[in-house]
Design a protein around this nucleic acid. Structure first.
Length: 426
RNA sequence: GGAGAGGUGGCAGAGUGGUCGAAUGCGAUGGCUUGCUAAGCCAUUGAUGGAGUCAAAUCCAUCCGAGGGUUCAAAUCCCUCCUUCUCCGCCA
């Protein structure tokens, strides 16, 4: 979230940013007024408390001296009534402010492209574009079916409904191999500490990273215990350090975690829901970093590099997109998407989103560091997928298929799969 | 799920109605000193909100798991919830 006092002092800037993010009907004027009310009430409340304290101190003396204490008690009673009333209003205002500010998106980075999705900027295209097939190549749907290792439309749906994939045989092993490959890369080569977090988290945790209160509809919720299934490992892993004050020496902190991700995808029916393209549950290896504010730009690039490395090693053709202010996620200040080329479907698939949140999440989750002896400040948080599996599988299938109906295993995965080809019924 | 015992500052741990934001120890930071390799001495060492200021200084308030209550006065008494530990039950 944004700092309340800062918002009140920089209304124009916030308004401008909200416009860039297509946020309509945000009543900042009332918000600013509310803040002044809060301060005034706080002042009066403190005053009353102070007065009561003094009465309480003089009470003893009065009693010892044998004076009548009834007037003091009367006075306190009156003060308490006023205090109660003021504090109730104060609590209400604070609640309103919180409710308001929690729904404000992050400010876009000043260098982020302006505009909506159409303004996303392709910053680089990497890897070799696969040569055209000299045989009748199949798309990922057909390959899944022919190879029989991703059972998308039959039994997965039978047991859990639409939007759930079921991997079997070497398909399941491919999933496991990709996870291990990515985790090994990030822990051994990139210096991340591996985390295996809870997959269900509390309301507070979901609020810390920005999923709540605004996006409750997108989450699976266990009402009996008021717990939510995580939509990404970002949620538990970022909140790992919530309410903590770190020493600058500890920074940067780098965590990686494999988890399944659960998303209701409410309202996103349509063309992209077939096959492995969009699922209610999918596997992802996530990268999360915490750092000093002045280092977050550099950290962002580093993080991007770590995610890209996975694609390099898998030999996939991909591009780096810098997202425009109107297309970024709620909490992000700056964001790169990695999109992989699927040569038969002839389109790009997003497999990673690498974001710098600056202090937006840190302020929500209250993650700070001691800047100087008497000064604490919020850290910056970043995260990126490294990577999401289903679309990677999809692209691997399309790109690495052979004319005999098999799929060649990318070199980097061979030690994990212990096979050179994926083929039916292996 | 049942019974019992706890939750105090970075950690350990005192404190059972006012003088307690809280002893003491450890740790950390700064300084001094010494040299027999690590110790000694001194000092500093929580956060949040508000007032104030160009900014500080400074002042006030709040916080002893969370939220309510009793009282002139609550870390301390009462209630609810959360959580940790031990035992029992159940279970991968």
């Amino acid at each position: 979230m944004l700092d309340i006092n800062w918002v009140c002092k920089n209304v124009d800037q916030v308004e401008q940013a909200l416009k860039e993010r297509n946020e309509q009907n945000v009543d900042l004027e009332t918000f600013v007024k509310l803040n002044q009310d809060r301060k005034n009430l706080q002042f009066r409340s403190d005053e009353i408390k102070h007065e009561r304290k003094e009465i309480s101190t003089s009470f003893q003396k009065a009693k010892k001296a044998g004076e009548d204490v009834a007037p003091l008690q009367e006075k306190t009673k009156a003060l308490k009534n006023e205090e109660k009333e003021i504090d109730a209003r104060l609590t209400e205002i604070k609640q309103q402010q919180r409710e308001f500010v929690m729904r404000l998106p992050n400010l876009p980075h000043e260098d982020a492209p302006k505009g909506g999705e159409e303004s996303n900027k392709v910053t680089r295209t990497e890897g070799e574009k696969p040569a055209p097939f000299d045989f009748d190549a199949k798309d990922h749907m057909a390959l899944c079916e022919d190879l029989g290792f991703v059972d998308v439309n039959n039994r997965g749906v039978k047991i859990a409904g639409s939007g759930f994939a079921l991997y079997q045989g070497i398909g399941a092993k491919l999933v496991r191999s990709l996870i291990n490959f990515m985790l090994d890369l990030h822990t051994d080569e990139h210096g991340y500490k591996e985390i295996a977090p809870p997959l269900l988290v509390t309301r507070k945790t979901m609020t810390g990273t920005g999923q709540l209160p605004k996006f409750e509809d997108d989450l699976y919720h266990c009402s009996k215990d008021d717990l939510f299934l995580i939509p990404t490992a970002e949620v538990p892993v970022t909140n790992l350090l919530s309410d903590e004050i770190l020493s600058p020496k500890q920074l940067p902190v780098a965590y990686t975690a494999y988890t399944p991700c659960f998303r209701r995808e409410a309202g996103s029916y349509g063309a992209d829901t077939r096959g492995l393209m969009r699922l209610h549950q999918f596997d992802k290896v996530e990268l999360v970093r915490f750092c000093l504010p002045e280092e977050s730009e550099a950290e962002h690039q580093k993080l991007l590099g770590h995610a890209e490395k996975v694609l390099n090693l898998l030999g996939l053709h991909y591009r780096v997109l810098e997202l425009a202010s109107g297309d970024m996620g709620f909490a992000a200040a700056r964001c790169y998407d990695l999109e992989v080329w699927a040569p038969v479907s002839e389109r790009w698939f997003e497999v990673s989103s690498v974001s710098n949140f600056r202090d937006f999440q840190a302020r929500r989750a209250n993650i700070r560091y001691r800047k100087e002896a008497k000064k604490v400040e919020f850290v910056h948080t970043l995260n990126g997928s490294g990577l999401a599996l289903p679309r990677i599988i999809l692209c691997i299938l399309e790109q690495y298929q052979t004319d005999d109906g098999r799929v060649r295993v990318p070199d980097a995965l061979r030690p994990y799969l212990r096979a050179d080809f994926l083929s039916k019924d292996v």
